[in-house]
Design a protein around this nucleic acid. Structure first.
Length: 351
DNA sequence: TCTGGGGTCCTAGGACCC
DNA sequence: TCTGGGGTCCTAGGACCC
C-alpha cells in the first residue's frame, strides 16, 4: 500500500493564492497576530530554517523569523483543498483511500510496480491541485507511513520487511509512528533506545511496564509490523470538542459560566449537524502556568440544548474558581451507531 | 519562551453487582 | 485475623497524532 502526504500542506495552500509568498518564510497560526496567545500551526520549509516549528508560541516564532509572513489559520480553505486531493486519489484506478487527516491518506492498490503507481499519483495530484506530495510504499500501514518521511519532499520511498531493519534499526524509537517523547524515554530507561533493540524485545516483557495492549504493540512497532489493510469505511466521529484560550485569564465565576455556555453552543452546533444526541461531557480546564484538569460526566442521552447546557454548568461547578483559568474546553461524546461499534470503522490509524 | 485546537485510544482505580 | 472472584461501568489522567 501507499501512504500519501502533502508537502507542507497548509503553507503550500497559502502560497497558491498568494504566489508572491513563494520562497519566503511563511508561518500560519492563530489569527495571524503574534502579539496574541496562539501557536504555530504550520511553518514553510523556509521558516523552519529559522528554527520555527509547529506547536511553538507565535510570539517566539515571530522573534526567531522576524521577516516571516504570518497568516491566520483558514480552515475552510484547507478543507476544500484537502477534498480535491482526496478526490484525486480516489479517482486513481483500483485505489482504496483511507483518509488520515487534511493532508494525508493511505491508498490501497494491487500492483506489481508500486513506484510507477506512486509517481502517477503524484503527477495526478499536482496536475489537479498544484500541490506536491511525498509517497511511502510499504507492506504494512506502519512501514508505508514511516517510508513517506524518507521520500520528503516530492519523493517516493519503499519500506518492507526486507529493508526495515537496515533503514530503521539504528534510529531512535521516537522515529516510530506512535512512539512519542514520553514512551521513548521510558523505553530508554529499560535499555531500549533503538528500533532494532525494540524489535528484538519479547512483547510479553513489555506488558508489566506498558499494559496488556500497549506493551506488545510497541514491540510490534519496532518490527514495523501491524495491519496491512487499507479501510475506506467512512469515519464516524466519537465526539466533538471546542477549546478556547483566553487572551486574559478568567478569574470570576460569572466569566466561567459565560464561557461554558458559549463553548456548549459551539459544540452542540457540531453535534446537531450530524443529527446525533449527546451521552457524555468532558470539561477541560487549563490553569496558569500549565496544569490541566478534566471533569467527565456521563449523561442520559439527550438532544435538548438546554439540558446539555445545564449539565455542562454542573461540571463547571467543580472548577476551583480561586485559580486563574487560561483555557476551557468542552467535549461532547456521542453514541456510536451499531454497525460502527464493533471493528467496522477505522479506529486509531495503523492499528 | 511558555506552550493551539481537533481528535483517538489505553490504563488504573473505585463503585457496584452477582 | 482476614477479608472470594469475576464482571461492568464510570471517572480521571496519560499518551499520541495531525
Amino acid at each position: 500500500m501507499l501512504h500519501v502526504d502533502l508537502d507542507q500542506f497548509v503553507a503550500a495552500v497559502e502560497v497558491l493564492r498568494r504566489p508572491e509568498l513563494a520562497g519566503k518564510p511563511v508561518i500560519v497560526g492563530g489569527r495571524g497576530d503574534p502579539s496574541e496567545r496562539a501557536v504555530v500551526s504550520t511553518a514553510s520549509y523556509e521558516a523552519r530554517e529559522f528554527g520555527v516549528g509547529s506547536g511553538m508560541p507565535l510570539r517566539i516564532a515571530a522573534r526567531k523569523a522576524p521577516d516571516a509572513v504570518i497568516l491566520p489559520v483558514d480552515a475552510e480553505a484547507y478543507a476544500a483543498a484537502s477534498a480535491e486531493v482526496m478526490a484525486t486519489l480516489r479517482s486513481q484506478p483500483g485505489a482504496i483511500v483511507q483518509v488520515l487527516g487534511w493532508d494525508e491518506a493511505f491508498v490501497g492498490i494491487e500492483t506489481d510496480d508500486p513506484e510507477t503507481f506512486a509517481r502517477q499519483t503524484q503527477a495526478a495530484v499536482l496536475e489537479r491541485t498544484r500541490l506536491h506530495c511525498s509517497v511511502g510504499i510499504g507492506d504494512t500501514l506502519v512501514r508505508a507511513k514511516v517510508a513517506t518521511g524518507f521520500g520528503k519532499p516530492r519523493g517516493v520511498f519503499r519500506l518492507t520487511a526486507e529493508n526495515w531493519l537496515d533503514v530503521m534499526g539504528d534510529r531512535p524509537t521516537i522515529d516510530l509512528w506512535g512512539v512519542g517523547s514520553k514512551i521513548s524515554r521510558r523505553l530508554a530507561a529499560l535499555g531500549i533506545s533503538t528500533v532494532a533493540e525494540l524489535a528484538a524485545v519479547d512483547p510479553a516483557a513489555l506488558v508489566a511496564d506498558f499494559g496488556p495492549k500497549m506493551g506488545p504493540w510497541y514491540a510490534q512497532l519496532g518490527r514495523g509490523e501491524g495491519s496491512d489493510v487499507v479501510d475506506d469505511t467512512p469515519w464516524v466521529a466519537r465526539g466533538h470538542s471546542r477549546e478556547t484560550t483566553f487572551q486574559q485569564d478568567l478569574t470570576e465565576r460569572s466569566q466561567i459560566e459565560e464561557a461554558v455556555r458559549e463553548l456548549t453552543s459551539r459544540v452542540l452546533a457540531d453535534v446537531a449537524a450530524e443529527g446525533r444526541p449527546v451521552i457524555g461531557l468532558t470539561l477541560k480546564v487549563r490553569y496558569t502556568p500549565f496544569t490541566t484538569k478534566v471533569f467527565t460526566k456521563k449523561i442520559a442521552e439527550t438532544s435538548d440544548a438546554a439540558e446539555v447546557v445545564a449539565r455542562a454548568l454542573e461540571l463547571a461547578g467543580r472548577i476551583e474558581a480561586e485559580r486563574p483559568i487560561r483555557l476551557l474546553g468542552l467535549r461532547a461524546e456521542m453514541p456510536m451507531p451499531e454497525e460502527a461499534r464493533e471493528g467496522h470503522t477505522p479506529t486509531r490509524s495503523g492499528w
